[in-house]
Design a protein around this nucleic acid. Structure first.
Length: 439
RNA sequence: GCCCAGGUAGUAUAGUUCGGUCUAGUAUAUGCGGCUGUCGCCCGCAGGACCCGGGUCCGAAUCCCGGCCUGGGCGCCA
């Protein structure tokens, strides 16, 4: 087929900007053919762009042969340009349609698409991910990722306003920084290197100079997780703040979450209705439970967790039913948390680490950090880690490391909460998990 | 790593219990034809599938064994 050149055409409106108020105006629209309904004497073409859809109406006897001929060639997913006249009508859901004066075909598409993009025969997540570029054209997915975008925009602007600097730390690192999680190895010019599991150590070092920093970026876990809430590559929203403790950053965190919820609810009303999801903006402050209280609550539900142990998923599911919203868990046993979390001064077996939960999902993890070098070395040893391999990090503690605290939000998990999606891969453009490395 | 479930047209499914009109059904998508107000348009026609390998059997989509792949749960974590 001979494709048309875009020439001098410039988009005048997105589909969403075409309203009954501009009845009679000529508009230039760019987008894709979503659907064609040909009734014989009249043909309806649904044009989709990133903002929505609009109906292009072609009454065959009352339209130029050139336009009719062009419209004969159209198929689903062709990208097209339409110059046409806006017509007010009560025969379409949006109250307008566009009668084309000229149509350009800018690119073709394969006739048999790998998935149904109209939603009549919804494909499984696996088939959808295999055809992800096409899958993302579905309005539900557009809406989901616009919500994610808005969430991040809200968090960023909130943190900027609170005086945080956005930073970027290395993804390629020399040694296994935190212990615990398995890391991916990379060949770094013949030297063994790793993909970072978190920016933890770097952001702590950075508060020495910048005091309040945050970073949004991907991190990597080589765990063979096989659940709906784990990825091998996920986006973390990390903050670290100097001269602050867990209480301070918990307050900041609940404000951030609150602000994100409000913003999404206000700015994404349309997107939320596309995905048919409603949520209530949480009230602050969030409920704060201590680890001991949680164990008590679980005991009453006949779920026994020995003190000192991490809380298993099964127990979290029970807890999530008891507290079906956001809640903090504080005062964890020191040994259940990472080595850099500060033990309480009055009660060292308990630490100043916290988790922010949403139902059974661990959404955020954070705490007051250890700022004394000797104590940090002590904790490293207790965790079976070698202080020698942390010497570059430990040097920061020779240069006046102030008390500090921070946290890390799992962006995809937050998006799940704000969209009601039950599989983390739904809210990840190109998810990486135990079995998926493509596309 | 461990445990459970499952692989049927492009997509989504029925059929598998207890092997036999299954020549594998349906919807949607695709192609062709028809239709002037559709919006999950409608109507007609056509093409299109039993994950791979082995075994049992007169006969396997169906039963057995092995493999591959996928989904889900646990552990670990955000």
């Amino acid at each position: 087929m001979n494709l048309d050149s875009i020439g001098e055409w410039i988009r005048t409106h997105y589909t969403s900007n075409v309203t009954p108020e501009i009845d009679g105006q000529e508009v230039t629209l760019f987008g894709w053919v979503q659907e064609i309904r040909d009734l014989g004497g009249i043909r309806f073409i649904i044009l989709q762009d990133r903002e929505g859809t609009i109906q292009i109406t072609i009454p065959k006897k009352r339209i130029s042969p050139e336009v009719l001929g062009k419209s004969d060639l159209l198929q689903k997913r062709f990208s097209i340009a339409v110059k046409g006249t806006v017509k007010k009508t009560n025969m379409t859901p949006r109250g307008i349609e566009v009668i084309p004066n000229e149509i350009k075909i800018l690119s073709e598409a394969t006739p048999q698409l790998p998935i149904d993009i109209t939603g009549k025969t919804p494909a499984n997540i696996e088939a959808r991910l295999d055809a992800r570029p096409l899958d993302l054209c579905q309005d539900q997915n557009l809406a989901t990722f616009k919500i994610q975008h808005t969430t991040l925009e809200a968090i960023r602007s909130f943190l900027f306003q609170k005086g945080f600097l956005e930073v970027h730390t290395p993804r390629i690192i020399a040694s296994a920084t935190e212990g615990g999680a398995e890391l991916f190895t990379v060949d770094y010019f013949g030297q063994k290197a790793y993909l970072a599991q978190s920016p933890q150590l770097y952001k702590e070092e950075l508060i020495l100079s910048f005091e309040k920093v945050f970073e949004v970026g991907p991190f990597f876990r080589a765990e063979e997780s096989h659940t709906r809430r784990h990825l091998s590559e996920f986006v973390s929203v990390d903050i670290e703040e100097a001269f602050a403790n867990a209480q301070d950053v918990m307050q900041l965190l609940e404000q951030v979450i609150h602000h994100a919820c409000i913003t999404v609810k206000e700015k994404c009303a349309g997107e939320l209705s596309v995905i048919k999801y409603k949520f209530e903006v949480p009230t602050v402050p969030f409920k704060r439970l201590t680890y001991d209280q949680v164990l008590d609550d679980l005991k009453k539900q006949d779920v026994k967790v020995p003190w000192g142990e991490d809380i298993p998923t099964e127990a979290f599911r029970v807890l999530g039913k008891l507290y079906p919203f956001f809640y903090f868990i504080t005062d964890w046993p020191t040994n259940a948390k990472a080595f850099y979390i500060k033990p309480r001064e009055d009660k060292p077996e308990v630490c100043e680490g916290f988790d922010l939960m949403w139902r059974y999902i661990e959404l955020v993890s954070g705490g007051t950090r250890i700022s004394q070098k000797e104590q940090l070395i002590q904790r490293l040893k207790e965790k079976g880690l070698n202080p020698e391999s942390f010497k570059y990090h430990l040097q920061a503690f020779d240069y006046g490391m102030p008390p500090h605290a921070g946290w890390a939000i799992g962006l995809e998990r937050l998006t799940m909460i704000l969209t009601g999606k039950k599989n983390i891969r739904e809210v990840t453009l190109y998810p990486r998990d135990r079995v998926r490395l493509t596309p």
